[in-house]
Design a protein around this nucleic acid. Structure first.
Lengths: 348, 348
DNA sequence: GTGAAAGCGCTAACAG
DNA sequence: CTGTTAGCGCTTTCAC
């Protein structure tokens, strides 16, 4: 199978270092040096090589580079679902931060499925990635440790003890506590918590639930399990269903603290579709600080984590683990958050 | 540099075909045959090899495979922004469909930027992809043709003539016409069109604008340029700004047809925040059929393309171009759409 | 049914 | 400053 002569631009064919070298009358190493910007090339040679590169449209073959380097330059961002506004916004920021570090982000949807989470963690998918930023949902800490086994890993969200990787989180408990305290301060007394996953679920949810309980306790209110429905997923539909059931029950709430903005949007919908008003009859607060919450009607009060900061820190830490093969103890950084008070929780 | 003996599981180290071969006492080719499921391996040998593979946790190195195959198994999905609900939902579906075909999707955000779109098209990014599904925004047809040059490509959205790739689209003009006709049928007479990009923008927008004009014409209404503000991007914020300016002007509209759901959500917000009512004072309709529109308050009337179908067709066509190196004439498929009538356009 | 050889495109490590 | 060598892990080809 004779190699095509350079210049024969059959679709799908791409010139290699060797082609450029032949055309420029130098060795492949010299071309390689030029391409990588190595210093040891004379100006004249560099010029000539660059000319050829330009002319034939040479582009390095990443597979070959990766094979050499033992790395792919790609990092995974493994999340439950990209059509959750919070993850969509976060993904955008992750991609920006990664690009600034010369990396590419591959989004993997785990859908809260054990097997898909396992596959993302082990990296035994079809595409090789150098590490991952992971938002666990189905797997618990021990399982994550087991599967990740030495892969560069940054976990998003609260983790109990030392995990198998660095951790970037926000004060989930504190944020939830502030939101619920705010609700109570506006005179609400029956505050529902929508988002308890039951079962393992994410540690984040557990912390938010803890914050809810703390706020109730500080206000001297009892915990009422009847105000804490289970949800199967963190979607608008589940928020509506769970809140709807609460409203249709004997003792409806006068406020809803939803564990994320999707659920909150669904909650608002449930309230309004029953002819009740937000916030007059039922106040609603969410968590995530998404743009969608801001443009909701009425605009949603929400706990807004520093998403930009989360993305920056996650990519930075992951990069350190990858390039330095860092064996340093795992670190946890806690990014700031802000309670954005909007009309959905105005006093009555 | 002596190779590590198999079994020394230093983090980051992964066994190769050769390691497995050594351990199993066979050649690399036999292991390769087993791994790929080639038929010419005796049951006993296969068994032994599989044992070793299991034991050492062998996983094929994709870079090497790709280097050999000249393919990566990854396809790009190049879109303006992942935090636009429509693209987030579409991305989810694209990933599902791609997975069913044994491919992985790499999302690339072009942000409506010429250079980023060019880079996505040429595939000269850091990661090699076998082709792409592309939603153009800044580049016109000629430029797309020029840059894509022989790469497997599926274009999303209306394209004038024969493009440089297959096309999957919906009837943008028809959908827009139906939406506007519906608004007019409810008695509206000053229908604004929010989403004109001016300049090149997407052909989709131009088709939607054409549909708007057609509907007006069929109702015997004149086209009023004052009701067609320019927008800089297809975001909630731009929808609010453009609609707000219209409402604050001398001759406010009694209805808004927004070219996508993000703009429509912003439009609703602009109306409500001025103390006006949707739909009583101003009706609002969007385009995209996103879940967000459904949960908007009031729920948004919207033109819903068959997103699942779009994803399926796009991945199927792209796959054909990649595997068959298809030189067949480019095809255009038009997927169905549906006008979802909801409360935001109820008659008054 | 199994294996040896060659090479995909690239770069680190050395010559010259 | 430039070139030669070797090999990353895999699969196609062709012997045995």
């Amino acid at each position: 199978m004779p190699r095509e002569t350079p210049g024969s631009a059959r679709p799908g064919w791409r010139p290699s270092l060797k082609d450029v070298a032949t055309l420029a009358g130098v060795s492949v190493m010299t071309v390689s040096n030029v391409v990588r910007g190595a210093p040891n090339v004379s100006a004249a040679t560099r010029e000539r090589v660059l000319d050829v590169i330009e002319r034939v449209g040479y582009v390095p073959n990443s597979s070959a580079r990766n094979l050499r380097a033992g790395r792919s330059g790609v990092v995974s961002f493994a999340i439950p679902a990209i059509d959750n506004s919070y993850f969509a916004e976060l993904a955008r920021l992750m991609m920006d931060e990664a690009a600034a570090l010369g990396r590419t982000v591959l989004i993997e949807q785990t859908k809260g499925d054990r097997e898909l989470e396992r596959r993302a963690l082990t990296g035994y998918g079809p595409t090789p990635t150098d590490g991952l930023v992971f938002y666990p949902q189905a797997l618990d800490g021990a399982q994550v440790s087991q599967y990740a086994a030495g892969r560069p890993l940054v976990l998003l969200g609260d983790r109990g003890g030392k995990g198998p990787g660095d951790v970037v989180t926000v004060d989930n408990e504190g944020g939830a506590r502030e939101a619920v305290a705010h609700l109570l301060a506006t005179g609400r007394r029956r505050v529902a918590a929508v988002g308890d996953p039951r079962g393992p679920g994410t540690e984040n949810s557990h912390r938010r639930l803890a914050g809810y309980r703390t706020a109730l306790g500080q206000a001297g209110l009892p915990f009422d399990a009847g105000l804490v429905p289970a949800v199967a997923s963190y979607t608008r539909a589940q928020g509506e269903a769970a809140t709807g059931a609460l409203l249709d029950g004997g003792q409806p709430p006068d406020a809803v603290f939803a564990f994320n903005d999707m659920l909150a949007v669904g909650a608002v919908h449930a309230v309004l579709s029953r002819g009740l008003r937000v916030p007059e009859d039922v106040a609603v607060a969410g968590f995530d600080g998404t743009d969608e919450a801001r443009y909701c009607n009425p605009p949603l009060t929400t706990v807004a984590p520093d998403k930009r900061g989360i993305a920056r820190e996650a990519m930075r830490m992951l990069g350190d683990r990858i390039t330095r093969g860092d064996e340093a103890p795992y670190r946890t950084v806690r990014m700031g958050h802000q309670l954005l008070v909007r009309r959905s929780t105005a006093g009555r």
